[in-house]
Design a protein around this nucleic acid. Structure first.
Lengths: 174, 174
DNA sequence: CCGGAATGGTTGTAGCTACAAGTTTGCTGG
DNA sequence: CCAGCAAACTTGTAGCTACAACCATTCCGG
């Protein structure tokens, strides 16, 4: 939160170079693991996981888009593909006729159960277990700061903080 | 670096949710800024920037791939497009006839000069200036830990640490 | 109660990335 | 000195994402 001068000094540049590398390398690595083990993208896994934790394993497209940090067009395409694979089904929302609900099928639930252990292991291996407990908390704070800068209105923040109060561990997909 | 139990506890999950969101949102945001201002991808900018800082503004494809954390096929396609736009030129490496050199053209250099201020401002806005000085250093350490887990052989590490010793600030593209 | 804006979504398409395959050049052991 | 393997790319293509355009509902002010 220093003065807003142009260019990055050496320390700042160091941090940015690291972050840039992580941004470039981590998603592909996670995708590869998940693709080999379960024929899923990390994004697809996240979508299925969010559905699996929702009441009745159902969410409106907009809600699912927020929870996965995706745009609606992107999500629409992805869910269409997941539906073709029988992992998800869509049906019109009764309360709002312009809305669409997405619900996890039995097959989709089975897919999450199958994929979860390997994916969690990958997240541990490449992120969580590579860090000290202190660094894990630092990462949370840094993530919050960056997300606040990305989305000053803080619409997404509600969703992040939802997980902060979550009870009942071990039931989910992480 | 705790014991390797399955699933994530609440603190770990919090951190992962944040990181996932950053991974999803930050690249698109940076791409959008750069695309509007300079008709470049963040990846393309990085490639041009790395060339601009290299001796004679020239690098071998492999070297450029390492510095941009890209696979060779990807880089090959990207450089082909940059070449068509006149920002880069390729020529066979005299010392090793199977290698290819990529060199920044005058136009490419001009493009970097034009794009740099806005891009650096975006990096500041969404990352650096959103963090305290302490957090910047924490991010460096966290990045190092994750990158080490991603690439245990540490081939890339040399390139990250290169920036740690860099002198002569203000000349570059960040 | 109705016209216009906003909400919630889908679809079409261009462009980028991943993966697999192929080519040329260099290296190394027998 | 040459067979086989590795290095350093390039190319083809399938699949995913971004962007823009579009359609159907719902909300809201006058």
């Amino acid at each position: 939160m220093t003065v807003n001068t142009p260019w990055l000094d050496r320390r700042q540049l160091r941090a940015w170079i690291r972050l840039r590398a992580v941004l470039e390398l981590l998603p592909g690595t996670l995708d590869t693991q998940l693709r080999n083990d379960a024929n899923l993208t990390e994004f697809e896994y996240t979508a299925l996981a969010m559905l699996s934790e929702a009441p009745d394993r159902t969410l409106r497209m907009t809600g699912l888009a927020q929870r996965t940090n995706a745009t609606l067009p992107r999500l629409s395409h992805v869910v269409a593909r997941l539906e073709k694979r029988g992992l998800v089904e869509r049906f019109p929302c009764p309360e709002n006729r312009r809305a669409t609900n997405a619900r996890l099928t039995q097959e989709g639930w089975a897919k999450v159960l199958q994929a979860a252990p390997g994916h969690v292991a990958a997240v541990r291996r490449y992120v969580i277990d590579a860090l000290t407990d202190e660094q894990v908390d630092q990462l949370t704070a840094i993530g919050d700061a960056v997300l606040a800068a990305l989305d000053p209105s803080g619409k997404g923040a509600v969703l992040y903080t939802h997980y902060d109060e979550e009870q009942d561990p071990g039931q989910g997909s992480y």
